[in-house]
Amino acid sequence: MDWKRGAYPEFKIEDAIAVLFLLKTPKGRKQISEELNLGEGTVRTLLKKLSSIGLVESQQKGHSLSEKGVEIIQEISKLFSEPLEVTPLEGFVTYALVVRNPPEFKSIELRDEAIRFFAKGAMILTVQNGEIVFPEDGRPLRETLPELSEDLKKLPVENGDLVIVTWAENKADALKSLIHVALSLKGELLPEEIKKLVE
């Protein structure tokens, strides 16, 4: 039996954050389980933990964020934006988000982090003079990938921001690898309640 799906309801901080973003609209346990590729037992445990610290409420129509949950998501959104599904790259499910005020980084290390977390690939971009560009040479993304560039305009970007794009075989891996890269840059600044979830 695959232990991940079995008796040990294990989840990572990436799962917890993905669930909080998903619950901006009410969802049932089965839907969360399918979208994040987690066992239902794991989702039950995670939701129980999130509601025990007052972030999630459960009603007949499913689970949703409490007022405190909404506040926590707003705090997280000051660090990095909500993941956005964008045009598929290389035929894979693709997501993007913005990391605000990024610390110093090496693109190659961030790409490696994404791939270690089951992404098929990742792209690290920066915003300069209102334009999303490749940090290595300042080349505008729109010159190589106009469709993706158009999609990324939906993100709340400002000069100096970092834009991370990851793609994977399924939604769960694309989403969680993306959040993982954002956390590798901003993890220490997460609200304490979220950090404690996985201690």
Rank of each mutant, 00 (worst) to 15 (best):
L46K: 00
K195S: 07
G39K: 00
I32V: 14
T144K: 01
P102I: 09
V93K: 14
D137C: 03
L38W: 01
K186G: 10
V19A: 10
E113H: 03
S64P: 00
K154L: 13
P83C: 09
F105R: 07
V165E: 08
E75C: 05
Y8S: 08
A119L: 05
R139M: 07
M123L: 13
Q128R: 15
E90P: 00
D151L: 05
V181K: 03
I164M: 10
E136G: 06
P156V: 11
L20D: 04
R44Y: 09
L178N: 07
G138M: 07
A182P: 12
L79R: 13
P9N: 09
R139C: 00
N129Q: 15
L38I: 05
S184W: 00
S33D: 05
E193I: 13
S177T: 04
T94C: 04
E136N: 03
G187S: 13
R5L: 12
P140Y: 04
V70W: 04
A168E: 08
T166D: 08
T87P: 13
G69Y: 14
K106H: 06
A96S: 15
R100K: 15
G69E: 12
E40R: 15
D137N: 14
V163N: 09
P103E: 02
S58M: 05
R142F: 07
N101M: 01
V56L: 11
E109R: 12
A182M: 09
A16C: 08
Q74T: 13
A172W: 03
V70D: 05
D151P: 06
P191H: 09
E35Q: 04
A16V: 12
E109H: 06
A16S: 15
M123I: 10
F118P: 00
D161T: 12
N170G: 12
F92Q: 11
S52C: 02
E199L: 13
R29H: 00
E158K: 14
W3K: 12
N170I: 10
G54R: 07
R142T: 04
F134T: 08
K68A: 13
L152A: 02
N101E: 13
W167M: 06
K154M: 08
A16G: 08
E131A: 05
G160K: 11
L55Q: 10
V157L: 08
E136K: 12
S81F: 07
G54Q: 07
I108Y: 08
E34M: 00
F118C: 03
I72R: 06
H63P: 02
S81V: 12
L97W: 09
I115S: 02
D112L: 14
V157H: 08
E199W: 01
N159E: 15
K176Q: 03
A174S: 15
L84K: 05
K68Q: 11
Y8L: 11
K24A: 13
R5N: 12
D173W: 05
V165K: 05
V198I: 15
L55T: 07
I115R: 09
F21V: 02
P9I: 01
W167Y: 15
K30C: 00
